[in-house]
């Protein structure tokens, strides 16, 4: 039973069943995120990637803050 139910779930994962031209690099991530029946594979990939992306986002904001600090900006203009 577990096997058949996991199969059903597998078939319902948007990342696994979606085919055709409408799907591409620009909308795939949103499609996966909005899928309530992600298969184990896609679920893991999405979780790991999401964590990584939020780290990237944080470091991006951090870098921006450093660049925008007046003292740092002065330093940069002296360096260049």
């Amino acid at each position: 039973e577990t096997d058949s139910s996991s199969k059903t779930l597998k078939y319902r994962c948007s990342g696994c069943i979606a085919v055709g031209q409408s799907l591409n690099s620009r909308n795939f991530s949103n499609l996966l995120h909005s899928c309530p029946y992600q298969c184990d594979r896609h679920k893991v990939i999405v979780e790991v990637e999401d964590r990584y992306k939020s780290e990237l986002r944080k470091s991006l904001i951090c870098n921006k803050k450093i660049l925008l600090t007046p003292r740092r900006r002065r330093q940069l203009s002296i360096e260049s």
């Binding site: 990342g15 085919v19 990939i45 790991v48 990637e49």
Partner: peptide, 28 residues
């Protein structure tokens, strides 16, 4: 041709692949 699911061919960043592999085995 149109029956191949594109979603099976996701290529995540190299630094994440080890962790993903540990959880789901090898990529398709």
């Amino acid at each position: 041709k149109s029956s191949v699911p594109l979603g099976h061919f996701m290529l995540p960043p190299a630094c994440l692949q080890k962790e993903i592999r540990r959880k789901i085995g090898s990529f398709i």
